[in-house]
Design a protein around this nucleic acid. Structure first.
Length: 805
RNA sequence: GGGCGGUUAGCUCAGUUGGGAGAGCACCUGCCUUACAAGCAGGGGGUCGCAAGUUCGAGCCUUGCACCGCCCACCA
């Protein structure tokens, strides 16, 4: 064993060994209590980012802890096909060769995606392994596996038969680049500098006056079917019911009243374009207005735009503005900064369009899920996120589940020439209504999250009845980022309840968002991202895991390299104290048979750490676990226990050796869930150990020596006084032996500063005396607090006496 | 605009029923001590964002304000 611990090489070796020896494997039917984590499936095209690394660190520490505690642990993993994201990646690849998906056609394109994935996809599992994630990689699943596809089809048909899936023409978010609908949750928003145009729509019967509206989308004027004002707006009260002319198309439309119009914005009058604005759409439907679409799926002016058909929106806007100016209807234009929606994948500006899409009603699905959340059968952690999850589900709108892309699960819907729809899991022979055999399958695919919603049970073989499904559903917990609550977590809960009649897991851990060191979000486009594998290469997976856990306490945290470096130091410290012990125990067998104060005290400290670690893990306070491990190792095990027994080890004290080995083993076990590699490596150097640490038993609590702690603490106080002042306080023989081993008084320089120490203690005595002299304190404070203060005062007086002699 | 989180040492952060302000890093001093110089021992450094309130006592509880951040959002 070298003095410097180098994780490089060691970690990969153990990762290979653990997996090869089948120690990550989960088997159903062991009869043991289960601990099941269906880890969030990363995008099949993705690479490990900091969020993944944190998620792995959290989940794997819990999994390893439970494995050692004797649970049957199933840490399950796989890939998400990530419809739009993957298609986008492949299309970019094609674009670099000057091609488009249109050059291939649907079937060839989908084949191309599969080829592309075989070439470039599926790298992240290697990175999970490199983090030390103890997943059962044999059971890796993919949402496009045949079995998984069958589960998705079953889910769709099930919901359709219940009447909860329907088709409707509604306004949706349209990405003109991908030419597909998107849910609200697949958008990003960006502030842009635009112009707000004030246009007068003249009254039909009085062209000299009219209603002035303000718009940021001049091109959509062609689709106006009304002007709306707030009914309480005095300025426009007389205009309600009159007719105005829509510019350019010179269509006469009514001025209507609607509460949803904000009188504060612009002039308080809104042009109503139902086909191209979500609010206008609602107003239009409620007032029974027509819905002319003047912008097409390609983002250009459509046939209904008449003479402007085929133009870009910018060109159309110029033409319309010229027309308005000529007639003097343009009141003014002003600079206007506002927020627009973009496709999160290609950053193309979203067009709100009316489109025939498939929807999933939330009305019935969400009821049992809400009950499960309100009764806390499923609990989000922290509590604030639990409330947010409930509110999100309460307000969940119907879910647009169809997408007009090619990569994904094609809808199990077949149409005959009569327009009848047949919905079956597999291709039907004839139309269910007219018997026609000329069936054409819907071209739409399902929203990626529709299949993700089945993850906890589809990966176990559902809808087949498998041993895995029987053993591991419901699972235990799930870890995820905050923004995934509505996209995924809530949907797993309601789909699990609907199809399995049981919640998929009991706990959802919403983990920290790791920000860049400057406080901005980590993202590739901002250039603030970082590759966690660089950390792993430089500092080791153990240090990286420790560092990420250490900073995982609050909702958002800035990444701090010092936390990872602290982890590296911890690994090195552990390595070296192990060298000390292993080099001086001969062929002793590990056995805790304490014969001295420092041994008893160390056992009491290990007991204390045992309690804290259990408590912190149970609360999902991973930073708290990391903190306790650090101080247990550095302050208690190394600085005091190891220093105290060192002289005995050098002398070959046969009593010290077996206990030292036993306590080191216990320390290694406590550290293993967080730092698996270095602990397993040290474990492999222990004499007579054949079993692996990863599957060794979590230590039992001892509990015999809690009362030895005050006796030991007197040595620590004595050391403090001595180092500050050079004065040697009175100690028992046993205490003095430990004191001399740890403090090495012969090495402490004789620049004693007794006067300063006396002054410090005098201040303390005065403070304590003051408090105890305050009658309001002694009469109102709890008696324990007063008693503790009296004891402190006495201790200070004793120390002071020792110094003054 | 809404929700949530944050504001404590130069930096990143702990502070768990209200009872003497802490850690790591950085900085300074002294030590190559037969585990570790990626170490050991010691030290300096903080009106706990601001203002009121409750209390014998507030970093912690209440109210208001300010600033920072994340997430969400159909003011055209």
């Amino acid at each position: 064993m070298e003095p410097l611990y180098k994780p490089q090489g060691v970690e990969e070796r153990w990762q290979g060994t653990w997996e090869a020896e089948g120690l990550y494997n989960a088997e159903p039917g062991s009869g043991r209590e289960t601990f099941v984590v269906a880890h969030p499936p990363p995008n099949v095209t993705g690479a490990l980012h900091t969020g993944h690394a944190l998620q792995i660190s959290l989940a794997d520490s819990l999994v390893r802890w439970h494995r050692m505690r004797g649970f049957e642990t199933a840490f399950l993993t796989g890939y998400d096909h990530a419809g739009i994201s993957t298609q986008n990646a492949v299309e970019k690849h094609l674009a670099s060769q000057g091609k488009t998906r249109g050059d291939y056609g649907r079937d060839a394109f989908v084949e191309l995606v599969w080829d592309w994935l075989r070439e470039y996809g599926g790298t992240i599992m290697h990175q999970f392994r490199r983090m030390g994630a103890s997943m059962d990689y044999r059971r890796e699943r993919f949402t496009m596996d045949d079995a998984y596809v069958r589960a998705v089809m079953r889910f769709f048909v099930h919901l359709h038969r219940k009447g909860w899936i329907y088709r409707a023409n509604r306004i949706i978010n349209w990405c003109p680049f991908h030419e597909t609908a998107l849910s609200d949750l697949e958008l990003v928003h960006e502030d842009v500098d635009d112009a707000l145009t004030y246009v007068r729509y003249p009254f039909v019967d009085d062209l000299a006056s009219g209603v002035t509206i303000a718009t940021a989308r001049v091109a959509t004027i062609l689709g106006d079917v009304a002007v709306a004002v707030n009914p309480n707006d005095e300025r426009w009260r007389d205009a309600i019911g009159r007719e105005v002319l829509v510019p350019f198309v010179e269509r006469a439309v009514s001025v209507i009243a609607d509460e949803r119009v904000d009188p504060e914005f612009g002039t308080g009058a809104l042009k109503v374009t139902p086909a191209h604005d979500p609010l206008d759409f609602e107003i239009g439907r409620d007032h029974g207005l027509p819905e002319p679409s003047v912008i097409g799926p390609d983002g250009r002016m459509s046939e209904e735009a008449g003479e402007l058909a085929g133009l870009s929106q910018e060109e159309a806007e110029r033409r319309i503005l010229d027309w308005i100016k000529e007639r003097g209807w343009l009141e003014r234009r002003e600079a206007y900064r506002h927020t627009i929606a973009l496709c999160e994948r290609c950053k193309t500006r979203i067009e709100p369009l009316i489109s025939l899409q498939w929807w999933c009603s939330m009305e019935e699905l969400k009821k049992p899920a809400l009950e499960a959340l309100r009764s806390e059968r499923v609990r989000y952690h922290p509590e604030s996120q639990h409330r947010f999850a409930i509110e999100s589900l309460e307000n969940a709108p119907d879910w647009n589940i169809s997408r007009q892309i090619w990569w994904g699960h094609q809808l199990p819907v077949w149409e005959c020439p009569e327009g009848h729809e047949t919905v079956e899991e597999a291709e039907p022979e004839r139309c269910s209504e007219c018997g026609s055999t000329e069936l054409v399958r819907s071209e739409d695919v399902l929203d990626t999250w529709f299949s993700s919603a089945l993850w906890p049970f589809a990966i176990l073989g559902w809808p087949e009845e498998t041993p895995e499904l029987d053993a591991w559903y419901p699972g235990t917990l799930n870890t995820t980022a905050r923004e995934i609550i509505r996209l995924w977590e809530n949907r797993m809960i309601f789909s699990g309840l609907e199809l399995m009649s049981e919640i998929p897991f009991s706990h959802v851990i919403i983990h920290t968002t790791v920000l860049a060191p400057d406080g901005r979000r980590m993202s590739k486009s901002l250039g603030t991202g970082m590759d966690p594998l660089d950390l792993v290469d430089e500092h080791g997976a153990d240090a990286t895991r420790y560092g990420l856990l250490k900073i995982s306490s609050s909702q958002d945290v800035r990444f701090s390299l010092t936390a990872v470096e602290e982890g590296r130091k911890l690994a090195n410290k552990l390595w070296n104290v192990s060298r000390l012990i292993l080099a001086n125990v001969g062929d002793a067998q590990p056995e805790a048979r304490p014969k001295s104060l420092e041994e008893e005290w160390m056992i009491a400290r290990l007991d204390s750490a045992h309690a804290t670690i259990t408590e912190r893990f149970d609360e999902f306070d991973f930073a708290g676990v990391a903190r306790r491990l650090y101080h247990l190792t550095f302050d208690e095990f190394c600085d005091w226990y190891a220093e105290a027994i060192k002289p005995r080890l050098y002398e070959g004290d046969a009593d010290a050796q077996p206990t030292a080995l036993a306590l080191l083993e216990r320390l290694l076990k406590y550290l293993h869930p967080v730092m698996p590699h270095v602990t397993e490596e040290i474990w492999s150097h222990l004499p007579h150990r054949t079993e692996r640490l990863i599957v060794s038993a979590w230590p039992e609590w001892d509990g015999r020596y809690a009362d030895r702690q005050p006796v030991f603490e007197q040595i620590r106080t004595a050391a403090e006084v001595f180092r500050r002042s050079g004065v040697m306080p009175a100690l028992t023989e046993d205490q003095r032996r430990i004191f001399e081993a740890v403090v090495r008084p012969e090495r402490v320089k004789a620049d004693s500063d007794a006067p300063a120490e006396i002054a410090r203690l005098e201040e303390e005595v005065a403070r304590a005396e003051g408090m105890l002299a305050n009658e309001r304190f002694t009469s109102k404070a709890p008696s324990e607090v007063v008693q503790a203060e009296r004891e402190k005062l006495e201790r200070y007086r004793r120390e002071l006496d020792a110094l003054r002699n």
